[in-house]
């Protein structure tokens, strides 16, 4: 039997798994708050106001929270989308990995830049 090549999937599966926890535990609440409750006027008048959000991203815990949510959601979803291509019969191979994990990496770096390196 031919020697087996070690897959580097554990790196992406770990990020996918961590992102899955964020997606299942935090995302439903966040989506409801920012996408539905806020525009439909279910929250208080000050909710998600510029001042309060600025205070949130200016604090290290707040910035870290948003960074983790944005980055891990991207790693979670890009992993799934990459595998879905294979499921529908598209053999993207290395190209798929470069595109989708590349997108997750770019999103992660953008989130880091705007949350930690941009003067407010």
């Amino acid at each position: 039997m031919k020697p087996m090549k070690r897959s580097n999937e554990p790196i992406f599966w770990s990020l996918f798994g961590a992102g899955g926890v964020v997606a299942s535990l935090v995302a439903p609440a966040l989506v409801f708050i920012t996408g539905l409750a806020l525009p439909l006027g279910l929250l208080g008048p000050d909710a998600l106001s510029y001042e309060r959000m600025l205070a949130l991203v200016s604090s290290l815990p707040g910035a870290l929270f948003l960074f983790v949510v944005i980055s891990l959601l991207l790693w979670h979803t890009m992993h799934r989308i990459n595998h879905s291509l294979h499921d529908i019969g598209i053999k993207a191979g290395l190209g798929g990995k470069v595109i989708f994990y590349g997108l997750a990496l770019v999103g992660t770096m953008a989130a880091a830049y705007f949350l930690f390196a941009t003067p407010l």
């Binding site: 989506v31 944005i70 959601l73 979670h76």
Partner: peptide, 15 residues
Amino acid sequence: AVFLAGYAGVLLAGV
């Protein structure tokens, strides 16, 4: 995943 990826984009746009 497609919808949740879109939401990550919304959050990033908000930031």
